[in-house]
Nucleic acid binder design. Structure first.
Lengths: 205, 205
DNA sequence: TTATATACAAACACGAATGTATGTAAATAG
DNA sequence: CTATTTACATACATTCGTGTTTGTATATAA
């Protein structure tokens, strides 16, 4: 219970992040006190303030743990000129993201926190800007893939890739929001994959 | 500055709601204290506690002021068997909602609060459920209109009205989220209407 | 082997927010 | 005209959270 080795400290750090996630989820970010996180992690506030400057740094650490892998994966899934045609790549990207939310509790909880248990004001306004910038990145990537699809004659009629990309991005943004908030799994979780496929089918030649 | 007439009291009540909206918007719901709302409204906490039991009652009052008219409008715009064909009715409903957000500061601010300045935990979890239930209502209405469109042969190929409705609802949900958060008006506000029209065009025969 | 930095726990100081209780002057009912 | 509400303002009690400071045992570097 005293001085730990470096690995022990890293474990403590991770436990604090996990405790923060659980606490944020059940009480909301701003209502969660450092003391609550600490007791949930089995440490004192001293440990938290040792590893993190304050609550928002802790929030950032929690967020990055799930966001960075997702961004990497997006780059992989969308950009790779691989076996599948562009429209299938988009479909796989969307379905794969849903699948990750299904499989990873940490990702699911973090998304729920970001979408309905956090107030984006003051220091948190920065986070919102990061989210928006990330959104712009997704739209951009989608547009490029849709352009490929168009040049390969996969799209019906002459549809604008930029508008298609935005439509898909907004659809998926809405889907994620509802998916995450549908904690009972009644509203749309069961049909999410089917909806994605129908969405893609709508633009296929 | 003492006992007011009934109309004066109603004015005070409305000023408190307005002050709450402004305060919620800039500091977030949970960080906003009753004292801040009071001073912003030019009254004391006593006045607020006279009109409202607590912060969440105040929140509900603020929300209902903009939500109830919107719901009424949805019923009018979508349900009426009028001059326009079903797909145009949907388009008008979506564009009209965007237009209201554009024109009404109160509506815009309230939506921004609900979407990014509020934590849906504890007492506020109820609000989230209301929102979800409202979402289900919108999907339902949309599905019915799409069924009309299908029976009139307005849709391309054989598309499932339920899936189309969900797709539209998710698209619009994503659009509203991004529209509200795009306070600089750079990301999508200028192209929102065009996106709606492209979305509808995609399903037209 | 000793000095120092690390990884926390414990204690302190301070502010801030909430709900309630009490006071009060004027509007309104009878 | 007086009794009672109404529509607040003011004061009080209590709780809770934050950031910082101090203490300390041990890992680690030299």
């Amino acid at each position: 219970m005293v001085r730990k080795t470096k690995e022990d400290a890293e474990i403590t750090r991770q436990r604090i992040i996990n405790a923060a996630r659980e606490s944020f989820l059940s009480r909301g970010v701003s209502r969660t006190s450092m003391e609550q996180i600490a007791s949930c992690a089995g440490v004192t506030r001293g440990a938290i303030y040792w590893h993190f400057d304050n609550k928002i740094e802790l929030f950032h650490a929690m967020r990055e743990q799930v966001i960075l892998p997702l961004i990497d994966r997006m780059d992989d899934t969308l950009s790779v000129e691989g076996a599948e045609d562009p429209l299938t790549r988009i479909e796989n990207f969307l379905c794969g993201t849903i699948q990750i939310l299904n499989d990873s509790i940490e990702t699911r909880q973090t998304y729920e926190i970001m979408m309905s248990k956090c107030e984006y004001v003051d220091e948190f306004a920065t986070v919102l800007r990061q989210i928006l910038s990330n959104c712009a990145g997704i739209s951009d990537k989608l547009r490029m893939v849709y352009e490929h699809a168009k040049s390969q004659g996969l799209l019906r009629e002459s549809q604008d890739p930029a508008q298609l990309a935005m439509d898909t991005h907004l659809f998926f943004s809405g889907l994620l929001h509802l998916w995450v908030k549908d904690t009972d799994g009644v509203q749309i979780r069961p049909q999410a994959i089917k909806l994605v496929k129908a969405h893609i089918r709508l633009r296929r030649n």
